[in-house]
Amino acid sequence: MLGEKRIERATARWRAMYAANGMEALRGQVKENAKKKAAARTKKKAEADGREYGLQDVAGKLEELLADVELYESRVRQLEKVTMELTDRMKVLEKRSNELVIEKEVLCKARTIDRGFNANGRNNTELYQLIREAVEACPEYANVTKLCEALNVSARGYYAYYKN
């Protein structure tokens, strides 16, 4: 695995160190080399990751993270606001949908009514009764004015009929 030349040079270096300072030199050099290599690996990894070690860098990173948290919190608040607006809009549309269902039912029933005339003009009694039934069945959705418009009768006439 190791090249022959590399082994020769390492051996020559160790012999020279042993000759100069004895066994302690070899032990110290090995420890220093290990520390240097570990430091070099750490530095290289930090550079590759784009990080640097230090309190200022940690503080800067912390500030960036706090800014990100604030941004996400503001986005959550915006989404909550939009959700509430959509919920309100959905309630309005649901109410209108129910009104239209009632209106359709009343119109379907009104088709079967004979719209004959009496001495005073039209006979709207049965139409008024249909409107009254719809209002009693679903008071929160039945809109008297719209039902009267759909059946071509006046709301004033409806209210006058039921007052008497």
Rank of each mutant, 00 (worst) to 15 (best):
K61W: 11
Y141S: 05
A25Y: 07
I7E: 12
E136G: 05
V30Q: 13
T83Q: 09
E140K: 12
V153G: 06
L55A: 14
D68P: 01
E80H: 11
K31L: 12
V101T: 10
L26R: 00
Q78E: 11
R111S: 13
L26Y: 03
I113S: 00
C138L: 05
V135M: 05
R51W: 11
S97T: 04
Y158W: 01
N118P: 05
R15N: 13
A137N: 05
A150D: 00
L66Q: 06
R96P: 00
V58G: 06
V82M: 11
A25L: 10
R51L: 11
Y128C: 02
K95R: 15
L65F: 08
V153D: 03
E47D: 09
A12D: 10
C108L: 15
G22E: 06
E149I: 07
A40S: 11
A150E: 01
K109A: 12
T87P: 03
N98K: 02
R15G: 07
R89D: 14
E103K: 05
M90W: 09
K81A: 14
A10T: 12
G3A: 11
E4D: 12
D57F: 06
A137Y: 01
C148G: 02
K44S: 15
D49G: 08
N123L: 02
A160K: 15
I102C: 01
L147H: 01
W14S: 13
R75P: 04
D68T: 14
K35T: 07
L130K: 00
Y159D: 08
R27C: 09
L93R: 09
A38Q: 12
A59K: 11
D49C: 05
S154G: 07
K146Y: 04
R156M: 10
Y72A: 08
A12G: 08
K37G: 02
Y18E: 06
V106C: 01
K43N: 13
E80G: 03
T42V: 14
Q129P: 05
G50W: 00
Y18H: 09
K146V: 06
R115E: 01
R96Q: 15
L2M: 14
T125P: 01
A142C: 02
R77V: 08
E140Y: 11
R122C: 08
K5W: 06
K31M: 10
E126R: 02
M90G: 07
Y158V: 04
A134R: 01
R13N: 11
T112H: 14
D49Q: 09
A20C: 08
A137C: 04
A34Q: 10
G121L: 04
A16T: 07
K104W: 07
E136M: 13
E103W: 03
C148A: 09
